[in-house]
Design a protein around this nucleic acid. Structure first.
Lengths: 184, 184
DNA sequence: AATATATGAATGAACG
DNA sequence: CGTTCATTCATATATT
């Protein structure tokens, strides 16, 4: 209840963008994430083996969310529409492969990955292909944007929305500059 | 021991090339962590299952906070992120630009607009890009829906038929979303 | 407060 | 491959 709200320090100039990391730290994090990926994969495999053997158990809970063919893996409701939605596990594996630096996977690699991911939900080679394409494209775009335009977004004017349009198209109450603060 | 101790955390002349993470980068990391959070939850549940099985099985299962309590929102959400809200001035400028017929604002144009809008509040290129994308998409959707679908569409469930589109949406791919040949 | 709507953001899929 | 479209999700705002 008694939260100090925010660091509205001086004149609303909040320094929220100060996560400083060295390149090496970022790299280490990525590597660790990759390692976690492999570990989780192995653990999932182990779990599948165990789950297959525990059929004779008593009133154990059946239908685990990570071993059955739940295509949405607890992500959202049954969005089994037209668009493929990766399972958490599938996403994890894809990210791991992506971060391992193998770059653009060939057709054979795509097939391989598809087979592997099929254990965790419905998936097609096209989806895998699209995923890698999108991933690469968006990463590139992000890096480009970051390099060409540093994140020094116009913060110079803490408040500028003081006008009121006479012919306002859409009533939108313009509140104070709610700054985005991350709590990580 | 033989720790390299490369991080001379003491305040001083730290020589490492300081790299400031952008919001997006932080977000990527947080998403990864979020994914692993979910995986760890699942693994913990697995561990509980196995442990219970080994000890006193049969009905050991109790209110598991990991799998069964949440109907559909079982996804972890660290996304305490706030989203950008355009200022009145920003909105006006955006609408003006949109009405100027520049249907497709190129990447360069996006940067330009971003710089201009930065004078009226915090904004990023991504937000501008998203704004135009959404603007176009929703305008098109409104026009489409209004022309061929009168508002007597009293359908409580916005999803009942798997048809593509009554009108001409776009010659999208047909058939099941599986087994589709790709070209690479 | 609960629900409805508006809309920023994310992303799978398609186009050129 | 880079860009764009279409759909969905999450959240801010409005309404009751």
């Amino acid at each position: 209840a008694g939260e100090p709200a925010e660091e509205m320090g001086v004149a609303g100039e909040t320094v929220w963008h100060v996560k400083v990391m060295t390149e090496e730290q970022v790299e280490v994090l990525r590597k660790q994430i990759s390692i976690y990926g492999a570990l989780c994969e192995q653990l999932a495999e182990m779990h599948r083996a165990i789950a297959a053997h525990r059929g004779s158990l008593a009133g154990m809970r059946l239908g685990n969310p990570y071993c059955d063919d739940d295509p949405h893996g607890g992500h959202h409701r049954i969005t089994a529409r037209h668009r493929w939605t990766p399972t958490h596990m599938q996403l994890q594996i894809l990210e791991s492969i992506f971060y391992q630096g193998d770059g653009t996977p060939g057709k054979q690699r795509i097939e391989d990955i598809t087979v592997e991911l099929s254990q965790y939900g419905q998936i097609s080679e096209t989806s895998v292909y699209n995923w890698f394409q999108n991933r690469r494209a968006r990463l590139k775009r992000k890096q480009q944007g970051a390099s060409s335009l540093p994140p020094n977004n116009g913060e110079s004017e803490p408040e500028a929305a003081d006008e009121e349009s006479p012919t306002d198209k859409r009533p939108r109450s313009d509140g104070p500059p709610q700054q985005q603060s991350m709590s990580m």
